[in-house]
Deep mutational scan, measured.
Amino acid sequence: LRLEVKLGQGCFGEVWMGTWNGTTRVAIKTLKPGTMSPEAFLQEAQVMKKLRHEKLVQLYAVVSEEPIYIVTEYMSKGSLLDFLKGETGKYLRLPQLVDMAAQIASGMAYVERMNYVHRDLRAANILVGENLVCKVADFGLARLIEDNEYTARQGAKFPIKWTAPEAALYGRFTIKSDVWSFGILLTELTTKGRVPYPGMVNREVLDQVERGYRMPCPPECPESLHDLMCQCWRKEPEERPTFEYLQAFL
């Protein structure tokens, strides 16, 4: 395994491009020591290896001592969030954005069929390849993070704006909380990567959403798509659509 080009840095580690087995181009995620327990990670990795779908980033291998390494397929255009905010983002029109959403829903419909939960679905965790191919990455890892700023769910590192209220408040993460996050991801797509709930801080978002506030229809977004977002944001988790439905609708 060779680490060649550093692609990015996040709160919990770095991402590199490299070569595996001398020939395969891969992405390598390294986790800061202390982010998660190697034992817990190894268990999760076994499950992650079983998830194989064309719209999920394929896991190739893991190094399960500290520092933990995760070796996955390489996606040339990086994260969907950076892609939307970058040069190419300007030229993306609604049909392409909807197609990308459908690809993500397709990957998540598979996660749904496998009775698995992602827990951290957002544009930053979707990767883009050639020809606007989108794949879901980092599934299941969020559960293992041991950082206090994260586990408190009120901490600075927790993605509260993407998280369903029952998950943020009571830790009830299910495929239905993933559906909520998918609704937020749809706003990221239609606004080219704007942060959700602009002008609001995490605490406010939690309070307002509890009181029934939902983001309005983004500019140039059809009402039918906003309606779909609002279905994803129904207060009762069981009233939210399935990913199978979302995939078919898109």
Rank of each mutant, 00 (worst) to 15 (best):
D120M: 00
L92A: 12
S76G: 10
S76I: 13
K77T: 11
D99G: 14
G10P: 00
V117A: 04
K157T: 07
L92R: 09
V15P: 02
L225P: 03
L80D: 01
A152W: 04
K157N: 05
L84R: 03
L80T: 11
P198A: 10
E239S: 11
F249Y: 11
L225S: 06
R211A: 09
P198L: 08
R122D: 01
V71G: 03
L59M: 05
H118A: 01
A101G: 10
R211V: 10
N115E: 05
S76H: 11
F83L: 09
N202G: 05
T24W: 15
W180E: 03
V71A: 08
Y91A: 08
Q154N: 07
V15C: 05
P38E: 14
E223K: 13
T187V: 10
V136P: 02
A137V: 02
G18Q: 05
G155R: 04
P219K: 09
L186S: 05
A105P: 02
W20T: 14
R234P: 06
K6N: 12
E223P: 11
G129Y: 06
K161W: 00
G10H: 03
L51G: 03
V57P: 05
V57G: 09
L94P: 06
E146H: 08
G171L: 14
G86P: 10
S64E: 10
P237N: 14
P38N: 15
R113D: 14
S37K: 04
P216V: 08
L51D: 00
E112T: 15
R2Y: 06
N148K: 05
E4N: 14
M17A: 11
E244M: 14
E54T: 12
K77P: 15
A156C: 07
L169R: 04
Q58N: 12
R172L: 04
A109S: 13
V62T: 11
P165E: 09
R211L: 11
G13R: 03
V62E: 10
W162K: 00
S177Y: 03
C232N: 12
F12R: 01
S181P: 02
K135E: 08
R172M: 05
K32N: 03
I175A: 15
C11V: 02
D82G: 09
M108V: 14
A164L: 01
N125M: 00
G22M: 10
K135L: 10
Q43N: 13
T35L: 04
M100V: 09
F83I: 08
Q208R: 13
G8R: 01
P237G: 12
K176D: 12
G18N: 03
K77G: 08
S79V: 03
P216H: 08
W20I: 14
Y60N: 11
P196E: 00
F243C: 10
K50Q: 11
C221T: 09
T191V: 07
D207V: 13
W233C: 08
L186G: 05
R143T: 05
G140P: 01
D82R: 06
N148A: 05
L84P: 00
T191R: 04
T151I: 14
M215K: 05
Y245S: 13
R25Y: 13
G155I: 04
C217E: 08
C221R: 04
G18C: 09
R234K: 10
G78R: 11
R143G: 02
M108Y: 06
G171M: 12
Y170D: 08
N131I: 11
Y60I: 15
F12V: 01
D178E: 14
P222L: 06
P241E: 09
S76P: 12
